[in-house]
Nucleic acid binder design. Structure first.
Lengths: 340, 340
DNA sequence: ATGAAAGCGCTAACAT
DNA sequence: ATGTTAGCGCTTTCAT
């Protein structure tokens, strides 16, 4: 029989209310009783009963905030699906989540929302925002106030968040390389397009790709790594340069950037049969270009799970005291039109 | 505010006990009251509070049975992981699951266990067994007694089960074809190995593969479809025949069967560079053969989800009255060593 | 600083 | 056939 607050209170010779105060850090308990209760709880391997807690919180559910970009950033549509599904599952669990869409280019907006949520006495937060100092400071402030924070999709470096849920970017680059190796036989040249190598997130996939190609027993050469800063025309121009005059580019890995621009350039030069392209994420533009044979594979990062999992982890942490792993990587899915 | 049994009872002018009897079909209620209660419940859009239900069932949880092959069938290891995870999540939800491992070759054993579970008054069952008449009859008997059944991993045809969780085999064959098309350029010949074309489950993938190849604008010919009945030596012999004398086989699709036998034959003839192989499932033998370059891709059917999902669906159906979709297909994952 | 008790929505046992 | 009531484990409010 699992331990309960009642059992602990009987053993400790105090009331259930006191045990509740100790275990939930509500203060107003003598140090001696506090220690005794903690000791007994740990000896009995106490974990709170989720159903009882949920029922007790029924009238006034614990409040959580989710801070993320608007769904107009297409990719976040699927993340939102996961969030909704998790909330639905937890609807009788005594918790309630509110989503705040903030700009994904102006970090101050995120920081501001985070401060607001702390004021509103949120019991926890889920955050997907730019890796900026203002966001980092806001998060650290929240955590210092005893409120846990989980980052998802894109991590915030060196902050006090509880954990991160998202893709292992380096590994994703390796998968892309593994695929490229299967597609290209014999001596071949590939180019890599990314956003900005000064951003760790834009660099990681490139490194994974290059490392895997170097380590593999294959005759592929990475002939170019081009930063296009997520810009359409810059990408179009650069890819066009790669393809024109038949310079012998056999494959392109779009690590980060505007896939449509790349596809358009390939179409313009009629190189779709000669040039193998691997990119990321499963959004309409990519799907369409895969269907017409411009793009060979896209790597999916399971956005649904990137929404679903953080909600569950935050709930489990706050309500059940579970400690998540620091990094919760979502699967790296290889997609062609048939298995989307 | 969500409707509760109390609110319904007040509107209907009956006691909460009576409402409980109606909504849970415990009988001993007049037809007139029954109808009134149902009408009010539906008008208020009533759904039971999961936490309250869980707490009430705390002392005597509802009992569910899981009937499936032993974990010595390697593939079921991962399914069991999913089952365990789901059970852990539901541990305070007033339900309890017991797993029964039965032979996957002798269907009577499964049927017998199913009957036993009905006698033990199980509130629901999860079943993965041979598609045999004895199992079908046992399931129908259980369902006729008002106990829901969900099949998983392999479906039981034409039975009264609530739903199925597992792979869309036909679609899986199409994905294999999609990959083969990417791997083979120019005129090429592929062979398909399966178990027994009289079994719908062994036939479906082959059909998906062949249909996709036919529909695609490619110059691949399916030159042979060979039944090997999951037998090692038969598979080894047949694959050897395909490869010896350099008969121009460029690809092999192992739809169903002994992958190790196929890999061994390819090794024997030293054709690993020339012959592209696509198979199914992510088990040690397959992983090892992918790492050494014998197998190019394997298609994963997300066994973890095939264990996790049925548990959740059964719980949600019995406890929360949710109707699942009839077919719950798990993802078709394309795997190479880098993304396992 | 600590205790006592009501209540969250549902079930089950008992009473009528 | 229907009503009444005592829990399930936890939180919260009110006393002391």
């Amino acid at each position: 029989m699992a331990a309960t607050i009642r059992k602990i209170s009987e053993i400790a010779g105090v009331s259930r209310g006191t045990v509740d105060r100790v275990l939930n850090g509500r203060g107003r308990v003598s140090e001696e009783v506090r220690q005794r209760v903690f000791r007994i709880a740990s000896e009995l391997n106490y974990t709170p009963n989720a159903a009882a807690k949920a029922l007790a919180y029924h009238k006034k559910p614990a409040y959580f905030g989710v801070v993320m970009p608007p769904a107009s950033v297409l990719f976040f549509n699927d993340i939102l699906e996961g969030i909704k599904a998790a909330c639905e599952e937890l609807k009788d669990s005594g918790v309630c989540f509110e989503v705040f869409n903030v700009s994904n280019t102006c970090p101050d907006e995120a920081a501001h929302t985070i401060h607001m949520l702390l004021k509103k006495r949120a019991s926890g937060m889920l955050i997907s925002a730019m890796d900026d100092i203002s966001v980092r400071d806001a998060i650290d402030n929240v955590v210092d106030n005893g409120v846990p924070v989980i980052t998802f999709n894109s991590d915030i470096s060196n902050c006090k968040r509880l954990c991160f849920v998202g893709q292992d970017l380096y590994r994703s680059g390796k998968v892309a390389a593994g695929l490229m190796i299967k597609l290209l036989k014999g001596d071949s040249n590939v180019a890599v397009i990314t956003g900005n190598m000064n951003f760790q997130a834009h660099k990681a996939r490139v490194e994974g790709f290059v490392d895997k190609i170097s380590a593999a027993d294959c005759s592929i050469k990475v002939v170019d790594i081009i930063e296009c800063y997520d810009d359409y025309s810059l990408t179009f121009t650069n890819v066009s340069k790669l393809l024109e005059n038949n310079r012998g580019i056999d494959g392109i890995y779009m690590a980060t950037g505007d896939v449509r621009a790349c596809a358009d350039a390939v179409k313009k030069f009629g190189m779709s049969d000669k040039t193998r392209i691997i990119c990321n994420d499963t959004i309409p533009d990519v799907i369409n270009n895969m269907k017409i044979g411009i793009i060979d594979f896209t790597l999916d990062q399971d956005p649904y799970m990137q929404g679903y999992k953080p909600i569950k982890l935050l709930y489990e942490n706050v309500f059940l005291g579970k400690k998540p792993a620091e990094f919760n990587y979502t699967g790296i899915g290889i997609k062609i039109p048939d298995n989307i």
